[in-house]
Nucleic acid binder design. Structure first.
Lengths: 149, 149
DNA sequence: CTGAATATTTCAGGTTGTCAAACAACCGGG
DNA sequence: CCCGGTTGTTTGACAACCTGAAATATTCAG
């Protein structure tokens, strides 16, 4: 379809050096991101899983089932995580008037406060991003969009 | 020091929309990366932690202590992971002739084979990267380098 | 030689994750 | 209406990961 001689197409067969380097770099960024996320969560006495779940619930209340889908894990696993957050008053289970089987998990005001504080303490990508010029940030955004699209 | 009116500098104070979007995008890339890594590991009957440790040992044998440093966890944790890999013949503990306290973990030939197969099955970043042009890949590489520098 | 420091392991305890089974509630067809 | 199948949540048993403290063995400095 495209370029006559080389470039642009990279069929999984033989990874070119550029792609390899980018993969390597992404690996490092992922590692740092995770590190920072975990330690920011720990500063708020949360585990990574608890922080992710709480952040989700701060956007909107969700039934346990949907929560499991978002977190890509089994619903039975979500039960325990919500249990622990509920025991600390950061989350509560509400009955769903439309379907008495489902329990909707929602962040409490305290939970939202903790989540906000958590979000603000996340320097993970902000700090390294500060070292980039606007042009570089735009290029980065476009490349990332392309990867996800 | 730098730009007169705006751009380039972004002191953590007020995150601009561009930075916010990039942070969001990085979050998604990180999530996908992790997903793919875990499932690639699972295809080889490895957990994520086991896959990371085995990959490290394929570069060079390492004492338990250093392994813990690389994995950013406690040495007592490494004991168990190496135990399980050793039970499957993928890793072995060797005595260090220079210091009888230390045990050096090394990948076995079988371990190296599994690790190679694992590495090859990692489509995580390769596939999304395939959708990018060379120019975009170069821009992405430069931005990532900038973030890590 | 003695005592402090280091490398590894063991143990107890907590969190995350899976899977199978139980239970309640919904829903559609007789 | 009621019955059977499906769906949402929880519970239980189990494995892995992870931490912290204590035990053990070895090194090293004085």
């Amino acid at each position: 379809m495209a370029s006559p001689t080389s470039t642009t197409r990279n069929p999984a067969g033989r990874p070119d050096p550029l792609t390899l380097e980018v993969v390597e770099l992404i690996g490092e960024v992922v590692a740092r991101f995770h590190e920072d996320y975990e330690s920011a969560a720990a500063e708020h006495a949360l585990t990574g899983a608890q922080a992710r779940l709480l952040s989700l619930l701060c956007l909107e209340p969700l039934p346990m089932r949907r929560l499991a889908q978002r977190l890509k894990c089994e619903p039975s696993n979500v039960t325990g995580i919500v249990d622990r957050l509920e025991a600390r008053g950061l989350v509560e289970r509400q009955p769903d008037p439309a379907d008495r089987r489902v329990k909707v998990a929602a962040a409490t005001p305290e939970g939202r406060r903790v989540a906000r504080s958590l979000r603000e303490s996340l320097r993970f990508a902000r700090e390294p991003l500060a070292g980039l010029s606007d042009d570089e940030r735009v290029a980065l955004r476009n490349a990332l969009r392309g990867m996800l699209g």
